[in-house]
């Protein structure tokens, strides 16, 4: 057990390091960095001496490799460098803006999950055919509407027309509901798709047939078999969903004019404030990696086939990866790929 956790931990740290390296490479290939741009700007009133001080302050007059090692070291000590536009510590900016986004994403996740569960259940268990059809259409619809469109519509209807919610963020819970529902709605589509497919798939398994043959009703079978079996793929999707929520927060915060990491990255991109952009990317990656790490730890407790002892871990990992194969990248694709993998109905003779 301890070795399993340590190994997962090492892997998580390795991914973080690689993500850092990747972002460093990407951002250092920029033609002319932002500081020099600022110094060389025509309206710049800096003296060459001031410019030199500025360059030294940010350390960008050093060789790239030295910058890389220094920043990497800083990473361990919580030092992500300084913002170019306002000179503040990036770490401070992140911690200042994280809570708002965390609240938004957290409530968004809850709303998305609740919505996905309801829709998936209705698709699979609704009594009337037409009702099933209507609900089957919902996930597809929600994955086809860009998040900013949903945001604008919700804002317009509920804030301006109905006056149910405040049009700007006044730090109340009511002001949080609409943006959270917006991101929640967007992530609920793929979740509902995956969940409803996995429920359908589980229900077509021979062991469910055997349960029927024991005289069990739908409710009993759902509690005993369907629930756990169909939640497994959702667990695998969780890390991806969190990442998607954070990305969704970028657009949502822009629509609702809320402070948060999303607003911060948009401003930073527009002002070419690279250390901040890099800091946000690293933070979200860290969150994603952490969620996946936790999932890895929790998984064996839910699926006994994933044994914790070292000998079988590799096989187990492979199996889990195989189960999640193709679930990378965008959630929308993930949902579709998951469905495509679903074997055709199990023949029974």
């Amino acid at each position: 057990m301890r070795r399993y956790i340590l190994k997962r931990l090492a892997q998580a740290i390795a991914v973080l390091w690689a993500a850092y390296t990747l972002s460093f490479i990407l951002l250092s290939v920029l033609p002319g960095d932002a500081i020099r741009n600022r110094i060389n700007a025509p309206d710049s009133l800096m003296t060459p001496q001031q410019a030199q001080t500025l360059l030294e302050y940010y350390g960008s007059n050093r060789p790239l490799i030295e910058q890389y090692v220094r920043d990497l070291w800083g990473l361990f000590t919580g030092d992500l460098g300084y913002s170019i536009t306002n000179g503040g510590r990036v770490w401070g900016l992140l911690t200042l803006n994280l809570p708002a986004t965390a609240k938004l994403a957290g409530l968004g996740l809850v709303i998305g999950l609740v919505f996905a569960v309801i829709v998936a259940l209705l698709i699979n268990y609704a009594k009337f055919g037409w009702l099933k059809d209507v609900f089957s259409f919902l996930p597809a619809l929600s994955t086809s509407v860009p998040i900013f469109v949903i945001g604008i519509i919700v804002l317009n209807v509920f804030a301006f027309d109905l006056h149910w919610i405040p049009p700007v963020d006044n730090h109340t819970f009511t002001a949080l509901i609409a943006p959270a529902a917006t991101v929640g709605l967007v992530v609920s589509g793929p979740l509902a798709q995956v969940l409803s497919n996995s429920i359908r798939l589980t229900r077509s398994q021979p062991f469910v047939h055997v349960m029927h043959a024991k005289g069990a009703g739908e409710g009993y079978i759902f509690r005993k078999d369907i629930l756990r079996n169909s939640l497994l793929p959702i667990l695998t999707l969780l890390g991806l969903t969190i990442g998607e929520l954070l990305a969704g927060a970028v657009v949502t915060e822009s629509v609702y004019a809320r402070a948060g990491l999303g607003q911060l990255i948009v401003t930073s991109v527009n002002t070419q404030d690279l250390p901040v952009v890099q800091g946000i990317v690293l933070l979200t990656t860290a969150i994603y990696v952490t969620v996946n790490f936790i999932t890895d730890i929790v998984y064996p407790f839910i699926d006994p086939r994933i044994a914790l002892d070292e000998k079988t871990t590799r096989a187990a990992r492979t199996r889990r990866l195989a189960a999640a194969e193709g679930l990378g990248g965008d959630l929308v694709e993930a949902a579709d790929l998951f469905e495509k993998r679903a074997p055709v109905e199990v023949a029974r003779s």
């Binding site: 062991f207 024991k214 005289g215 069990a216 699926d303």
Partner: peptide, 19 residues
């Protein structure tokens, strides 16, 4: 079902809930 009439299924490897 299960009390008066019961079933022995065809493929034991997939007829038990793995979890």
């Amino acid at each position: 079902r299960g009390r008066a009439v019961s079933l022995i299924p065809q493929d034991p490897t997939v007829s038990l809930d793995p979890l």
